[in-house]
Each structure stands twice: as structure tokens, then as C-alpha cells.
């Protein structure tokens, strides 16, 4: 008995030593970066941008692996089962905090416990836009318009449970209005419909909407961030414009399967922090209307938990459900 337990302990120590040694040399082989969305989406753009820069700093190739499906659940589940050696990382976004309310994840993964938070990368607010033909020029006017004819103002979203849907549902809840929710397959088609005037309002991600705003095809009423956006300085925040507590911000971060050696996480955090302030990344994010965000590991974990709680309430109150 004692001999066996000794053996187990020695083995454990040896294992810990080797993993610690391995962590020091990390990375010694290419790293897989799972993006749980198809190419072209915001997760993909952010993930690839960071991957290119990070791989230069780490001196190892970072292989971007798009594993889309079920709003990110498929790729996230895959990452949760990956070896805990730091050679599999996952790009997450607000969807990570929303999916547990939309899908039955029992027996698959726990959005908080199955992962070690590595670093939050950036955040980008949504923007409330209307077709220029709509009478309302401000958020208050639109609220009045919607109250006059409840369930008549057409609100296009990128699909049930999407960021565009969440932002609108939060607005409905806090402003006490009811739109006619018209879901689309993705943000592009939804925006086309609002530009064309078939629908009136959209809570689009700022990143995808600036071109349309600047060319006057869409009129911005308010941005969903805590403060005004640098690329639309004249547009008030929705909170300023009449819905005091409103905040809808998409964010992107990197996590690893739970149990990754702390040394690996530290190395990654150090390099990611450097990448975040590198000029090409700063420029790219600024152009897209996104802000660099830096948090400590516990802050990031707490932020994820608070986002989960916040959007869980919105999902329940609005009755959106995927299953």
C-alpha cells in the first residue's frame, strides 16, 4: 500500500516537473486556435488578426481552425475536450455567455468551469440604426414611434439569439417597447433589408455598420457602449439618449481548456498584451470601431460570469429560445 502510494506520488511529482519544464519551453510546436464560427465573421477577423501577430512573437505557427456550428457550441465543445497543454486555444465572444441560455449544454461543457480564461482581447459596441426614411431622428422619438404602434416597427436581427437580437431585446426590455422582430440568416441580409427600407430598425454591430452610416444609407440613433465611439463622435450613447442603463457590447477573448499550466497562461498573457498594443493591431481595431480591453485573469473570469448573468435575464424575459 505505502509503496504504491509512494509510487503514485513520485509519478505525480515527475509529471509535474516535466509539465513545468515543458511549460517553460512553451511553445515547442504549432498551436491550434479554434474559432467556433465560419470564416468572415467578427470572431474570425479578430482571431486571425491576433493569430498572425501572436505567432510572430511566440516563434511558432498558430493554426486557425474554424469549427462552426450551433452558434459556436460545436467548436467550444471540441476545445473543452482538447489536451490541457496550451496547444489548443479557443476564441470566444459574447455568444459564449449567451449559449448556455439558448442551448442545452448538459453533459457537454460548462462555459465557466470547463475553461481557463487567458485574456480578453477587445470589445465593440452595437449601434442602433434606422432606415433614413424613418421619421424618428433620436432614440426618444423612436421609442415614441414604437409606443404609438406596438409590434409594428420592423426590427431586423441576424437570427434568434444573435448579438443583434440580444441588443434589440435588451432595448425592448429597458425602453418598454415592442418591435416586430424579423430574424434573418446573418447580419448581412438583415442590413440589406434595413437599407432597402423593408424593415426600419436594427441593432447592428458597429464594426459592420460604419460604411453604411458614413454613406448615409443608415441613420445612427445611438451606440450601445458605455461611452461614445471614436469613429462616431457625434452619435450619443443609447444610455445618454434616453435608456439610462442600456449597454450592449460584444467582446472577444481567448480561453484554454481548464487545467492548463499557469506558466503557459502567463507566457500567453505576456505576449498577447504586447500584441494588443502593437501598431497594426491597434490600427485595425480602431478602424473597425473596436477598443482594446485588458483585464487580469480573475477580472476576465468575473466579467464572463457577469455577462452570463446579464444576458441570461434578457434571454428569459424575451422568451428567445433555440431548442
Amino acid at each position: 500500500m505505502t509503496f504504491r502510494s509512494l509510487l503514485v506520488k513520485t509519478a505525480g511529482v515527475l509529471l509535474a516537473l516535466t509539465t513545468a519544464a515543458a511549460a517553460q519551453q512553451y511553445p515547442t510546436k504549432p498551436i491550434r486556435l479554434i474559432i467556433p464560427f465560419p470564416p468572415g465573421g467578427s470572431n474570425d477577423v479578430v482571431g486571425r488578426l491576433i493569430a498572425t501577430q501572436l505567432s510572430e512573437r511566440l516563434g511558432q505557427q498558430i493554426v486557425v481552425d474554424n469549427r462552426s456550428g450551433a452558434g459556436g457550441v460545436v467548436g467550444t465543445e471540441l476545445a473543452s475536450h482538447a489536451p490541457k497543454d496550451g496547444y489548443t486555444l479557443l476564441v470566444i465572444s459574447i455568444a459564449h455567455a449567451v449559449n448556455p441560455w439558448l442551448y442545452d449544454l448538459k453533459g457537454r461543457y460548462d462555459p465557466l468551469k470547463s475553461f481557463t480564461p487567458v485574456a480578453i482581447l477587445a470589445s465593440g459596441p452595437n449601434v442602433m440604426v434606422v432606415n433614413p426614411g424613418v421619421q424618428a431622428k433620436t432614440v426618444k422619438e423612436l421609442i415614441a414611434l414604437a409606443k404609438k404602434s406596438p409590434g409594428k416597427v420592423g426590427w431586423a436581427s441576424a437570427g434568434v439569439g444573435s448579438f443583434q437580437h440580444l441588443g434589440g431585446a435588451l432595448f425592448e426590455l429597458q425602453a418598454g417597447v415592442k418591435f416586430l422582430h424579423v430574424p434573418f440568416k446573418g447580419g448581412g441580409p438583415a442590413m440589406i433589408d434595413v437599407v432597402a427600407g423593408h424593415n426600419q430598425v436594427m441593432f447592428s454591430s458597429l464594426v459592420q455598420t460604419t460604411p453604411q452610416i458614413q454613406s448615409g444609407k443608415l441613420r445612427p440613433l445611438g451606440v450601445g457602449g458605455k461611452k461614445r465611439s471614436a469613429i462616431l463622435p457625434d452619435v450619443p450613447t443609447i444610455a445618454e439618449a434616453g435608456v439610462p442603463d442600456y449597454e450592449a457590447t460584444n467582446w472577444w477573448g481567448i480561453v484554454a481548456p481548464a487545467g492548463v499550466p499557469q506558466a503557459v497562461v502567463d507566457r500567453l498573457r505576456k505576449e498577447i498584451a504586447a500584441v494588443q498594443t502593437a501598431k497594426p493591431v491597434l490600427d485595425a481595431f480602431a478602424r473597425e470601431g473596436a477598443d482594446i480591453v485588458q483585464m487580469t485573469q480573475p477580472e476576465f473570469a468575473a466579467y464572463m460570469a457577469s455577462e452570463m448573468a446579464k444576458w441570461g435575464k434578457v434571454v428569459k424575459a424575451s422568451g428567445m429560445k433555440v431548442q
Binding site: A70, V74, Y103, R108
Partner: peptide, 13 residues
């Protein structure tokens, strides 16, 4: 937003 004929496979959603 209802999943139809996905037989419990998230890959089919």
C-alpha cells in the same frame, strides 16, 4: 429558432 430534425446533433443545427 426551433431546431428541426436535428436528432440531438448540434452539428445539424
Amino acid at each position: 429558432g426551433v431546431q428541426r430534425f436535428s436528432f440531438g446533433f448540434f452539428e445539424l443545427t
